[in-house]
């Protein structure tokens, strides 16, 4: 168990609908792993399953293990999970405007993160540490006394980052941390996230639908669609030689390299949960689909590098 995070056979259901099926995912020590896919692919639910904070009625099954925690996270009770959250495992959410308590000073919200887990000796130490954390996200110490509404979205997201990193977690999960931000501040926040995890040797699971961001932040990437991991591998490999037809479509649509591909998009939309086709979940949108695609494609490759497609793209086409 050298991995920081090890997810095996994660399945998430709500009543009779399956939202995430059989996801395997590992993050090594200090590794930065991207989780990409269109909206509605099940990325957030995967992250929330790890954290044990799924919405009401949504249930996770499978196995989630985290380094430094001697119990299984799936199904662990609140008492145990509350010791893991914010200590070994922290998360930055998508929406900075609503993530902070509007009636509490920002400094107290950061200090609280350390006081909850007693990682500092007392209030004074917690406040001193909070000031230092603010400095690390390039905010002045006066920010301690500010209320969230006095700060911009980018500043608030830096606060959320500061409090997530307060206890040097083994793993930081960021769920679309810059999606809601102005383009002008996105780069700064990304830079602070990477610096923050590197300084602490924390591992990072980075969720986004922006492939360019993955390319700059992550070393390895998993592509999710229809609640499944359809392809995974080193970023360079997956982005230059995609095998799964969904990954291929995503890359073509993202205009990562060439301008001619600007207008290429994947035909159709992501179906609502529970309405994906049987067999390959992508087959109703895939130009390469044949009859065999109505049976579920099996995984080709190793656990960390591979894909699940009956008619994968030729290795040479994009190289």
């Amino acid at each position: 168990m050298s991995d920081v995070l090890s997810v095996r056979g994660l399945t998430v259901t709500v009543r009779d609908k399956t939202l995430v099926s059989d996801v395997d995912l590992t993050v090594g020590p200090g590794e930065r792993v991207g989780l990409i896919g269109e909206s509605g692919s099940g990325k957030s639910l995967t992250a929330l399953s790890v954290l044990g904070l799924l919405p009401e009625d949504v249930v996770a099954a499978g196995s989630v293990q985290l380094t430094g925690v001697d119990h299984e996270l799936i199904g662990a009770d609140e008492r145990r999970m509350s010791r893991v959250r914010g200590r070994h495992l922290a998360m930055v959410f998508q929406e900075p405007m609503t993530a902070l308590n509007p009636t509490m000073r920002v400094g107290d919200q950061i200090a609280e993160a350390m006081l909850i887990h007693r990682t500092v000796p007392g209030r004074r130490a917690a406040r001193a540490a909070a000031v230092e954390l603010l400095g690390r996200v390039q905010l002045p110490r006066e920010t301690m006394r500010a209320y969230p509404h006095q700060l911009s979205g980018g500043q608030r997201q830096r606060i959320v980052l500061a409090l997530a990193l307060a206890n040097d977690p083994a793993l930081l999960i960021c769920d679309e941390p810059t999606t809601a931000l102005d383009v002008t501040v996105q780069a700064l926040v990304l830079d602070l996230i990477v610096k923050g995890v590197v300084a602490r040797s924390s591992a990072l699971l980075f969720i986004t639908h922006d492939l360019a961001v993955v390319a700059t932040v992550c070393e390895r990437v998993l592509v999710m669609y229809g609640g499944r991991v359809v392809e995974s591998g080193p970023v360079e490999e997956v982005f230059t030689r995609p095998r799964h037809r969904y990954t291929e479509g995503l890359l073509a649509a993202s205009d990562l390299e060439t301008n001619e591909r600007r207008l290429t998009t994947i035909p159709g939309n992501v179906p609502p949960a529970g309405q994906f086709p049987s067999g390959c979940v992508f087959r109703n949108r895939c130009r390469h689909a044949t009859d065999v695609c109505s049976t579920a494609p099996s995984w080709t490759g190793t656990a960390s590098t591979g894909f699940a497609c009956h008619h994968p793209a030729e290795v040479t086409t994009h190289a």
């Binding site: 904070l53 509350s82 922290a90 609503t98 902070l100 509007p102 509490m104």
Partner: peptide, 25 residues
């Protein structure tokens, strides 16, 4: 509210999270 989820993500249990971050709101 999202901030209550943030409070939980920090490691507060449901009731303390509601107490510290919910009451005033």
């Amino acid at each position: 509210e999202d901030y209550l989820r943030t409070a939980r993500a920090k490691g507060l249990r449901p009731f303390p999270a509601l107490w510290r971050h919910g009451v005033r709101n």
